[in-house]
């Protein structure tokens, strides 16, 4: 039997959230949800793990701090010791307060860019990448829940469909993939 995918569309985020709760309570696994905006409280219901993006961002920012320390040391002390306003120019550590703004900005720069690029790569939403949402209306005012049969081996297709139809569905499409 071919695998089937259910695209269950709702016209309200609260309806989707309630339906997801009802379906999960019956033991059905929801694979994904497509929504124009984040739905508060949905992640724990459909079992999405907490993002590790913050940890990645911290690592990018720490890399930025280290790079800026190496950079300021090389440019301002080692390669050519700059004398600015009579500040101690043979030592990085004694001049450190002057480099803090650079360190701060470069940490923020690396943390933010690293996080944004990671996010776009991970979600496959870099500019020019093909859209993966099943229906363009999910970028407007509709909400789609994706349920696949091979994650719900305990249910027959008709059984699944019946349970899904019992929720407040706006539109349902069943495809093979």
């Amino acid at each position: 039997m071919a695998n089937k995918v259910f695209h269950v569309m709702y016209d309200d985020d609260q309806k989707l959230l309630d339906s997801a709760r009802a379906l999960v309570a019956q033991g059905i696994r929801v694979k994904d949800v497509f929504s124009p905006f984040p739905i508060h409280g949905l992640d724990p219901v459909i079992g999405v793990k907490r993002t590790r993006l913050a940890i990645a961002s911290f690592m990018y920012a720490t890399t930025g701090t280290l790079l800026s320390i190496i950079g300021t040391w090389y440019f301002m002390v080692s390669d050519w010791d700059w004398n600015i306003g009579g500040k101690p120019n043979f030592s990085w550590i004694e001049n450190a307060p002057a480099f803090v703004p650079v360190m701060f900005e470069f940490s923020v720069f690396c943390g933010a860019h690293g996080m944004a690029i990671t996010y776009l790569l991970r979600n496959g939403t870099l500019p020019g990448m093909p859209a993966s949402n099943p229906d363009p209306r999910t970028t407007d005012d509709k909400f789609v829940m994706e349920i696949v049969t091979d994650q719900n081996a305990g249910f027959s297709v008709s059984d699944l469909e019946e349970k899904i139809r019992a929720t407040d569905v706006y539109e349902l499409s069943i495809k093979e993939y």
Partner: peptide, 12 residues
């Protein structure tokens, strides 16, 4: 704290 320190230290 740091801004107050840094600006005063730098302008001297």
């Amino acid at each position: 704290w740091f801004c107050q320190y840094m600006l005063i230290w730098y302008s001297n």
